[in-house]
């Protein structure tokens, strides 16, 4: 509970710091990317703090490169 609150608080702090100047200067692209990234980050943080297992991106990399590695290094 606490953790989710801190994540949200951090997210709001970031909005507070960045959003006003972005809105004032009408930077729509930046605002979009900012929001998407912030949303993704907050979601991930909340998921982690709730203890849910999230697969690591290294798994995807592993799947692609494991065969090559086994071939060349023979392990």
């Amino acid at each position: 509970m606490w953790r989710i609150a801190t994540v949200l608080a951090a997210g709001m702090l970031m909005v507070f710091i960045e959003a006003p100047s972005l809105i004032k200067n009408k930077k729509r692209k930046e605002l979009w990317v900012f929001s998407v990234l912030l949303l993704a980050g907050s979601m991930l943080c909340i998921t982690i703090s709730m203890g849910i297992e999230v697969p690591s991106p290294l798994e995807w990399i592993k799947r692609i490169y494991e065969p090559i590695s086994k071939l060349l290094l023979g392990k």
């Binding site: 990234l37 912030l38 980050g41």
Partner: peptide, 12 residues
């Protein structure tokens, strides 16, 4: 402007 959200993502 992208610094802060990317840092949050990196943290996670």
């Amino acid at each position: 402007p992208l610094t802060l959200p990317i840092c949050m993502l990196l943290y996670a």
